[in-house]
Design a binder for these strands. Structure first.
Lengths: 245, 245
DNA sequence: CGCCCTCTTGATCTCCTTCAATGACAGTGG
DNA sequence: CCACTGTCATTGAAGGAGATCAAGAGGGCG
């Protein structure tokens, strides 16, 4: 059994024992994808969603003109591919950045889970709203901030997400994305990502050792970031309690 | 009773008579907001969501540094303010562009509706995924396209949404946004929006008469747009049928 | 050992911003 | 009826953030 880590859900709402158990085991047996390999191509028929049990992966859109934009960098514990649930053909490509362990959940199983555990609908609704907020913040940052501010925001975002799953030690974490990929996330060229990063390094705000990055002065970085981190409301008023539905 | 127009839902899934009736009447009695007035401020406590029964409104984020980014332009029939349902303080400000008729739905009522009509959870999940896809497309356009391409995409997006509610005649529709507001949507300055728009006009691709805009050659505009319109899947495989839950 | 990928840096170019001024128009009060 | 005011559209000139093009260096892996 895949034993999907429930990071996302445990951050946002209290789950009953049964619910937690169901979510952890909702996926097919896990599949291992090698670095760089494609988990699902853009335009593939949509027959399921994906649980990222371990690893880093990207969700990217290719414009007809050929450019690639990464719209989300997924880490251990993320659900992937859910935006395409409302389409016939997948909107985004899912690509493994590091080696990834992935469990697929067929849409037919989603259907029976939604019927058997009616609180799952509202819980998923909540999870998507959180993703939507993240995209709103990205749009605001892209529209109104400089390359430097956006890069700092992205690094802090990685930091804040990784720290919840115990992948940060003293501001230091593994960042397996190349500068080209960072550019595709930020809407910048790899060259400009490099220059911006080197500047931050020279100012002593960050340090790098191979694939590792160290956020040396998080307070200073937070002052540079155009947006503060979001505080999600645990168990909001509209969410029916376990057992209530 | 507000009689909220179910544009959003009828586009995406078949509703039972009961469900349609419930959704149409879920709001408080409607309130009229004058042009420019604020429906809900950023950081206000979140105690409900809003149904836009008629009019144009914006959802915008203000960055700490003071810049405003519009993340969504709402038209008749849209649900507003739902991203803030996962927060204590509203993420976005809701502002009337034209005179607006708005019905509020208290979160406590959302809770009972979710319990009484369990298919509402999956339906809302679907509605948010559609919004999320729209934001993904915006991010891709902002990251990889020129001002001209983004403006064309926005105009076509308005066209495609307005045509579904019968507000377009022969490529012509009312566009009550100032160039400054368009700039805040696109992440551009009003000056550059003006120049870009005049250029499109001189090329004969669009025409303007006061608040009205005419998309003269929609095919040509679609070729300029960096992204084609999305085709939402009506009644996806994972969505339980009415009566099934 | 040699190849390819990634990082790095310089030089030049360009798209969009910034700053500034003008005109058109609607609303308002005398 | 008309001056007065504020908002919005328009255009020019100059400046800057980031793109593009090009080349070299380091490092992992066959």
């Amino acid at each position: 059994m895949p034993n999907y880590p429930l990071t996302r859900f445990h951050e946002q709402a209290s789950l009953s024992e049964v619910e937690a158990e169901v979510l952890r085991n909702m996926g097919d047996p896990e599949i291992v994808y090698r670095r760089q390999s494609v988990i699902r191509r853009q335009r593939d028929p949509v027959d399921g969603i994906y649980l990222l049990i371990e690893g880093w992966a990207t969700s990217s859109l290719c414009l007809p003109a050929g450019q690639r934009q990464i719209v989300k960098v997924h880490i251990t514990g993320d659900m992937m591919g859910t935006p395409s649930m409302v389409l016939d053909a997948a909107a985004d490509a899912l690509t493994a950045v590091t080696e990834c362990r992935v469990a697929k959940v067929p849409l037919t199983r989603m259907r029976s889970l939604l019927i058997d555990y009616p609180r799952l609908g509202p819980l998923l609704f909540m999870a998507v709203q959180i993703e939507r907020l993240a995209l709103m913040d990205i749009v605001a940052a892209m529209g109104k901030s400089s390359a430097r501010e956006r890069l700092v925001r992205l690094l802090l975002d990685f930091h804040d997400r990784l720290i919840k799953i115990g992948m940060v030690e003293g501001g230091r974490f593994d960042l397996p994305l190349t500068q080209e990929l960072l550019g595709d996330v930020l809407g910048l060229t790899a060259v400009h990502v490099n220059r911006t990063m080197r500047l931050l390094e020279r100012e002593g705000l960050i340090a790098r050792h191979g694939q590792c990055i160290v956020l040396g002065d998080i307070e200073a970085l937070r002052r540079i970031s155009p947006l503060p981190p979001r505080r999600i409301r645990f168990d909001p008023a509209w969410l029916p309690a376990p057992g209530e539905m």
